[in-house]
Nucleic acid binder design. Structure first.
Lengths: 110, 110
DNA sequence: ATAGTTTTTCGTAAATTTACGAAAAGTTTC
DNA sequence: GAAACTTTTCGTAAATTTACGAAAAACTAT
C-alpha cells in the first residue's frame, strides 16, 4: 500500500506544518499575542502573565524560537524576546495561501 | 501534559491552537490539500498518495476530524471524507485575525 | 566583586503523538 | 451470503511534548 515514488512531503507543506505545530498550544498563542503587545519583550513580563512555571514558559519560548517566530536580544546585552517579523510575514503568506486552497467538494454543514 | 486549569487560556486562543495543532504535521497538510482536490474523497485515494500505512493515514484523518476540519460521509452509506467548509472558514477567520495582530516592537531582520 | 535578580538548563515523570502490522468491522460485488 | 475489497480499531513501541522544581548560568545593581 505504499506509493513508491513519494517518500517525502513537499517542502512547502513541511514549512506550513512547522509553523502550525509551533502554534499548536494555547500557551504559545497567548505568549505570541502578549509578546506582540509589549514594548520591552522581557521574559518576566511574559512569564508573569501565565500560571506556568518559568521553566515551562522558557520551554515554550524555545519552541517558538526554534520555529523562527520569535528571537532573542535586539539590543544585547539586554535580553529581549521579539517577534521575528520576516518570518511572521512568511507564516502569514503560507497560511493565507493554504487557507485559500480551492476545495473541489465539501460539506456545507454538519 | 495539559495544564491542570482548563480555563487558563482565552477560548479564542484555545481554538486557534486546536486548529494549528491539527495542521502541525506535514502529512496532515498534504492530506488536506489532496482531499481538497478530490471529487470523491475516498479513503484509498488519500491513502495511496502517501508512503504511510493505511492505519496511520486513518489516524491522521481522525485527528483532522477531531479538530472539525474534515468529516465523513456526505452520502451514506458511501464512505467519504470531505472538508468541513464551515469550520474551514472559521479557521481562516481565526488565523487571519491572529496573523494580523499588531506587533508593537519587532526585529526587522535576523 | 558580590549580592540579588532573571533566565536557562537539567532531571524527571506523565501524557500524547506517530508509526506499524494484524485483526476486526464495514462495504461492495458476484 | 460469500468472497473480495476497503476502512477502522487494537496492540504496541519509540519519540516527542508538556509540566514541574532545583540547580546552574547569565545578567544587574550595589
Amino acid at each position: 500500500m505504499e506509493s513508491s515514488n513519494k517518500n517525502t512531503y513537499p517542502p512547502e507543506d513541511v514549512k506550513i506544518a512547522r509553523f502550525a505545530k509551533a502554534l499548536g498550544h494555547p500557551a504559545r498563542i497567548s505568549i505570541i499575542k502578549h509578546l506582540a503587545s509589549l514594548e520591552t519583550c522581557r521574559f518576566t513580563e511574559i512569564s508573569n502573565e501565565f500560571p506556568l512555571a518559568n521553566s515551562t514558559v522558557s520551554q515554550h519560548l524555545t519552541e517558538l524560537k526554534k520555529a523562527g517566530l520569535i528571537q532573542g536580544s535586539i539590543e544585547p546585552p539586554r535580553l529581549q524576546y521579539c517577534i521575528n517579523y520576516e518570518n511572521w510575514k512568511l507564516l502569514r503568506k503560507h497560511f493565507r495561501e493554504f487557507a485559500h486552497i480551492k476545495i473541489v467538494k465539501y460539506e456545507k454543514s454538519q
